[in-house]
Design a protein around this nucleic acid. Sequence first.
RNA 1: GCCCCCAUCGUCUAGGGGACUAGGACGUAGGCCUUUCAAGCCUGAAACGGGGGUUCGAAUCCCCCUGGGGGCACCA
Length: 500
Amino acid sequence: MTNAIHPARVRFAPSPTGRLHIGGARTALYNYLLAKQTGGQFILRLEDTDSKRLDPAAEGEIYDSLKWLGLTWDEGPMIGGEYGPYRQSERKQIYNELIQELIERGHAYYCFCSQERLVKLRQEQKKRKEPPHYDGLCRKLPNEEAESWVQGGESHVVRFKTPKEGTTTAIDLLRDPIQVQNNTLDDFILIKSDGMPVYHFAAIADDHLMQITHVFRGSEWLPTFPLHVLIYQAFEWQQPVWAHLSVLLNPTGKGKLSKRYAADPKKGAKSVYVLDLQEMGYLPQAVNNWMALMGWSYDDHSELFAMPELIKAFSLEKLHPSPAAVNFSKLDHFNGLYLRNLSILELTERIQPYFEKAGYNADSESLLPIAALVQKRIRTLADAVEIAGFFFEESINPPPVDLIGKGMTAVESALAAEMAHKRIGLLDLAEHDAVETDLRKLAEELSLKAGQLFGILRLAITGQKVSPPLIATMAIVGKSLVLSRISEAIQKLKQLDHSK
RNA sequence: GCCCCCAUCGUCUAGGGGACUAGGACGUAGGCCUUUCAAGCCUGAAACGGGGGUUCGAAUCCCCCUGGGGGCACCA
C-alpha cells in the first residue's frame, strides 16, 4: 500500500460553529487512522474565520468528543506544535502575506463592489437564468489605482483571478478526474472585507503551510474543488492527495444527515451528536467501528474492528464514494458486541454512572453480580438501568393482575406463591442449582409448568415481566426481601380475588 | 435554472469481463435452546434502476435516460 510507506500528515479542521456530529467525527476518524497507520501526525485545526457563526461552546465540545472517541491529536490547539497557531483566527498575518504574493503574481485582485451591487447582480442573473457569478468589474481595475484605494481605507475584498480559458482537472482519489471549464468558475472571494480569509483560501494556505499530505473532507466540497486546485497552481504548490468522503444521509436515506434527526430521536433515530451517543450509553469503540464502516469496508465479511485493528486494516483504496444512510440499529448491534466483550469488572464501572444518574445508590460491589446478569441483555449502558434498576428499588409495585400466573386464577396463583414462600424459606439462595431443582419440583407438585411458577415469582420479586434469570436474581435480592415481596404479592392476589 | 458527484437486498457493503444459481453484516421471518427477556446456533425471504451499445461473454467497460445526493454566499 502506497500510503504505508510515508508518514502522513493529516488534519481534521472543523469549524467551531456547532456540536460535533458523526459526519465530522467519521472524517476525523479516517484522518486519525491514516496518521496512526503510517506513523504520521494527526492535526487538529480550528477553522474559525467566521466570527458571526462562532459558537462559544463548540470548541470545547469538539475537544471532548474527539477525546472520548480516542482521536487524540498530535498537533493543534491546547498542545501546540511546530506549525501553529492552529486557530485560523490567529493566522491573519500569515494569510495577508500570502495574499500579497498572490496579487503580485497576478492571480488575485482587490474588489470594491458593495454587497448591494452583488445582490442586485445576482438577482439580475437569476432573472436571465444565468448561474450567479461575479461579473468581474473590479478585475479590470489598474493595480495602482486599486492599491491607492486600499491605502485610502476603502472597504474591499480580495478575489481570485480565475482563468477565463482552459480547463482545470482535479484529481480525487475516489473518483475519475474531475474536469471543469474555467469559464464556468467564479472569481470567488479570498479575503473578506473584515480582513479574514474565506475557507477556500485559509484551508488551502494552511494545508500547504502545515505540510498536509492527505485531505479528507466531505463531498460538499466537490463543486469548489477545482477552485482549490487553481489556488495550488497559482502558488505553484504541490497538492496533497484528495479524498472527498461520501456524505452521510438520514436513516431514511432522504437528505443529508440533519439536525432535525438529532433533535428528534423517535423511530429509532438516535442523536447525531457524538456526546449524545456517549450519554446514551454507547461505547467509543462501537461508535468508531460503526462510523468506519460507513463509506469504507475491508473485505466481503469482516466487520468487527476495534481501534488497533482499524488502524491496521484501514486503506484509502477501500473508501467508497457513494452516499451512506446511517443505520442506528447497526450501532446498537456493534455496541452489544463490544459490551459483551467487556470484563464484568469493566462493565460494572461503565454502568455505575448510569445507575447513579437514575438516583440509585449503586456501589460497584453490589453492582458487580448484577453486571454479570445484564451483560447479554443490554445494547447500551443505559439499558442496564432499565432492566436491573429494580435491584435498588425500595419497593416494587407490580400491577396486581400481572401477578396472576399464565393460564391461572388469582387464587391458584396465591396458593402457588404461598407454597413457594414456604420452600424458599428453607433454601440457601446461593445454591442456585438446588434452588432451581426444588422450585421445579414444587411446580410439579402443584401441577404447574415451571414457567408458570417462575412467572409469578418473577413479577413478585422484580415487578417486571422481563428480568434477568430468576434464580440468580433471587440470590442477589436476598432471602428476606424475596420473602417479603412474595408475601406482598400473596396479599395482592388475595385482595384481587376478594374484590371480584 | 446551472454545475458537480453517486447508483448491488429495506440499510451498510463485497464484487473491478467468465470463479455470480451475486457473498457478508444489520434489520426482518421461522426454528432450536429456554423460567421471562436476551445471548448463542440453524434456516428462509430479500438486490445488480431502465434502455442502448462493446464483447464469444457484463453487476463489472462506454453512452443515454431515470433516480438520489451535493453545490451555486464577504458560511464552512
